[in-house]
Design a protein around this nucleic acid. Structure first.
Lengths: 154, 154
DNA sequence: TAATTTCTTGACAAATTTAGTCAAGAATAT
DNA sequence: ATATTCTTGACTAAATTTGTCAAGAAATTA
C-alpha cells in the first residue's frame, strides 16, 4: 500500500486550482501553483499532465493560459485524483485474486481487502469542495500534538 | 503513507505463530514460518527480530526453540505489529505539526490527518484473534473480482 | 508575422527505500 | 560435545520515487 508524495502533490495542486473555481475563465498557471504549494515546477508538470490525461483538468496554452478543473469541485473526489497518479498500486501476490499462497488464500488476505475498502470509501467520499470548505472553518491553528501517526502522509 | 511487504510479512508471520497458540509450550520455528508463509528465511529473521524487540514475541534458542506470542492473540492488534515494523512513517512536511507550508497549514493537511486516523482506528481494532476467527468462517473461496483496488496491498 | 507566454512530451538521472543476503556468534538441550 | 535455533550487524541489489531537462507546439498580442 502506498500513497506517495506525488499523490499528495497532486491533491494539493488540485485544491489550489479548485480554489480559483469561482473566477470565471481564469486559468491557473503551473508556475503559480508551484510557488504557492511549494512543488518543484518540473515535477508538477509531470503530475498535471497525468491529471489532464485522466480528464480531471482542462488546459490552455499561451498567454493567460493554464489549468482549470474539468468538472465542478464538488464532483471531483480525492480518490479520482489519487487513482490518476498512483499507478504503482502494487497488487502483487494477493491482489484481488485471493490466491496469495499458490492457490491458497493467505491468512491476512481478507484483512488487507477490508483495509482497501476502508480507504477507498474514505477517499471516494471526499470531494475537493468538501476539503476546501472544511479548511475554511478549521483555521483554529489545529492541534500541535505529537506526531505519532501510525501511517503518516508526508 | 506506506505499508510495505515487510509489514505484510510481519502480520502473516504473527498470524502463523498465533495459530499455534493453543499448543502449550510449543514454539514455532523461523524455518517453518518461512515455508508456510513463503517469506524469505533471512528476511524473516530480521522481521521477527523487530517484533521481539517490541515485545510482541518471546523467543527461545536451541532445539525445540522458536517463537511464541508474548500476549494472547486477542491482545495483540494489527496496529501493534505494523507500528513495530514500518518505521518509515514518512512524516516529512505535514507530519502532525501542521506547518507544511512554512508555517501555514497546507490545504490538504486535515485530509491526511483524517485518513491517518481512519487507518489507525481500523488497525487498532483488529486483533490477531479477530483475523484468525474471521478466516475460519470465510472459506467461501471468496470473490475473484477484478483487482481494481484503489490502494492495493501486495 | 514575430515575439512571448505557457503548456507538452519523452527521456534521463539522482536519491531514497525496500527487499533480501550472509557469516560469525551465542544460547539451549540432549 | 554436538546439533539446533535464534541473534546481530553489516552489506548488496533491485525497485521506486523524485526529480530534471531540452526541444517543441499552441495560443495570444502587437
Amino acid at each position: 500500500m502506498r500513497l506517495t508524495k506525488k499523490g499528495k502533490y497532486a491533491v494539493s495542486a488540485m485544491l489550489d486550482i479548485a480554489s480559483f473555481e469561482d473566477k470565471q475563465r481564469s486559468f491557473v498557471k503551473i508556475q503559480d501553483i508551484s510557488k504557492r504549494q511549494r512543488i518543484p515546477n518540473s515535477y508538477l508538470e509531470q503530475i498535471l499532465r497525468n491529471l489532464r490525461r485522466e480528464g480531471l483538468l482542462i488546459s490552455v496554452t499561451g498567454p493567460n493560459g493554464g489549468y482549470r478543473l474539468s468538472r465542478k469541485s464538488k464532483e471531483i473526489t480525492i480518490a479520482d485524483i489519487v487513482m490518476s497518479i498512483e499507478d504503482r498500486l502494487d497488487s502483487t501476490e494477493c491482489g484481488g485474486t485471493a490466491d496469495c499462497l499458490l492457490g491458497e488464500e493467505c491468512l491476512s488476505h481478507s484483512l488487507w481487502s477490508q483495509l482497501n475498502e476502508e480507504l477507498e470509501s474514505f477517499l471516494k467520499n471526499k470531494s475537493l469542495a468538501d476539503v476546501l470548505s472544511k479548511n475554511k472553518k478549521t483555521i483554529t491553528k489545529s492541534s500541535s500534538k505529537e506526531n505519532n501517526n501510525l501511517i503518516a502522509v508526508g
